[in-house]
Design a protein around this nucleic acid. Sequence first.
DNA 1: CGAATACATCGTTATATTGCAATGTTATAT
DNA 2: ATATAACATTGCAATATAACGATGTATTCG
Lengths: 103, 103
Amino acid sequence: MGLTRAEIFSEEQNKLAAMFKLLAHPARIAILQYIAVNKTGICNDLIDELGLAQATVSQHLKELKTFGILKGKIEGKSVIYSIDPDMWITVRGNFAIFFAQEI
Amino acid sequence: MGLTRAEIFSEEQNKLAAMFKLLAHPARIAILQYIAVNKTGICNDLIDELGLAQATVSQHLKELKTFGILKGKIEGKSVIYSIDPDMWITVRGNFAIFFAQEI
DNA sequence: CGAATACATCGTTATATTGCAATGTTATAT
DNA sequence: ATATAACATTGCAATATAACGATGTATTCG
């Protein structure tokens, strides 16, 4: 049905999956890498960098911002996006815990 | 379009996104956790554990196996799944590199 | 052999995601 | 005030994904 049956999984499993999903697209990876390197990024730069249409880039930025890994600051006509360090650390920590499992 | 424009991203970005995507579903997280704890797992156990239909569990197992993070060994009527340590380490390593970015 | 067990695969339905053109919004520039 | 710039939002079309019943395929058991 295309609808994940989230209710049968634990909070932790759903949260982890949501984090993985956020990063499960090369455009969103590229956006985070660009902003990590340049410390900040505006939508226009990312349009050039990625080669996707403005609407598409804006949509990916929105997903990252809604999740909380990016924050946006309005500066004149532009929006300056940057990584939210707290969320970044949280996400990294959750992944680390997942991969710390003995196998 | 629904079709990711993979050709405009780097190999690395596409690979990373594919890894994240593999883990971007709570059922696949749960399968890996179960097998990590129990060292191995057969489909039937996972059906009970997850509460999803047999066909659905089989499908998720296939995805994990196709990617290479799980391997399956036929043992009588059952298939014993286990984590491929090399792939596990590879995946963990790639994520570690991603999260090692200065922000 | 025939039945049962344990999966895999197929086919279908419901929903989600990607990408973009068109359009809306807000702020600066003229 | 009008134009432009820099986005955000809306509304679609194309494709992907999740879930599952039904069916196929080995394998074991009686």
